[in-house]
Amino acid sequence: MSLAPWLDACPVVAILRGIRPEEAETVGAALLAEGLTILEVPLNSPNPLDSIRRLHAAFGERALVGAGTVTSEDEVAAIARAGARLMVTPHCDPALVLAARARGMVACPGFFTPGEAFALLAAGADALKLFPAEAASPAVLRALLAVLPKGTAVLPVGGIGADNIPAWKAAGAAGFGVGSSLYKPGDTAATVSEKARALRRSLVAS
């Protein structure tokens, strides 16, 4: 499995931090209707495995459903059983990349330094999450891409929204992890749709 076709369709990972299982399907449907098909449920959300199961059951092959804030091999195994096909970590841990790939999942681990990036790529990471992006800049991303293997997909995460996507895209970002600019606890499906449309407009304009 590859992340590239999903990013080609829409380069946004919708980070649904805090989502509850009973709202996962309606929010997921709203995102898919706006063309956002990569859905991440962070494991520090309420009953995250249930939300992952529901999203996977509802949207199957139409969406790439995964888990974020994955920090242990036991969690990798648990999200795989729940139907996740994408694993995202907040940190550099090559062992988690190996565990995810062994289960057929796409691995997008977090990094912040060139050394971490190269270690994760050596372990087989499909893409890299630059986190926290607020502590970096598009100029930092441009410098990183100058030394990373050609074609490395880097997705800035943290503080990403419609206002700064164009600058990150110009620096070479292959995609973006977007949290509260897309969804925060309490948002209705209609609110999520509106936020998604704003993000899509920024992508088209950039």
Rank of each mutant, 00 (worst) to 15 (best):
P5K: 09
L16R: 07
I15S: 11
R20E: 15
A24W: 05
L31Y: 07
L7Y: 10
L49C: 10
L3P: 00
P21E: 03
S51F: 01
I38F: 02
D50N: 13
P11Y: 09
V27R: 05
A9C: 08
P46I: 09
S51L: 08
A29T: 08
C10E: 02
P5Y: 15
R17V: 06
P48A: 14
S51I: 07
L43D: 10
P11I: 09
L36F: 13
V41T: 14
D50R: 15
L49N: 03
L31Q: 03
A30G: 01
R17M: 06
L31D: 03
A30S: 05
A30F: 03
G28K: 04
E25R: 14
P5H: 15
L39F: 00
P11L: 08
S2K: 12
E34N: 07
P11S: 12
I19C: 12
E25C: 11
E34S: 13
V41L: 13
W6S: 06
R17L: 08
L3G: 02
G18V: 07
L32G: 09
E40V: 03
V27H: 06
T26Q: 04
L3K: 07
L32I: 10
A30Y: 04
A24F: 09
R17Q: 10
A33P: 00
T37S: 15
S51K: 00
L36T: 08
R17T: 00
L32F: 09
V13E: 08
L16F: 09
A9K: 10
L39E: 04
E22H: 12
P46M: 10
E23H: 13
A14G: 01
D50V: 13
V41Q: 01
L3F: 07
I38W: 05
L7H: 03
L7F: 08
E40R: 03
I15W: 13
L32Q: 14
A24R: 05
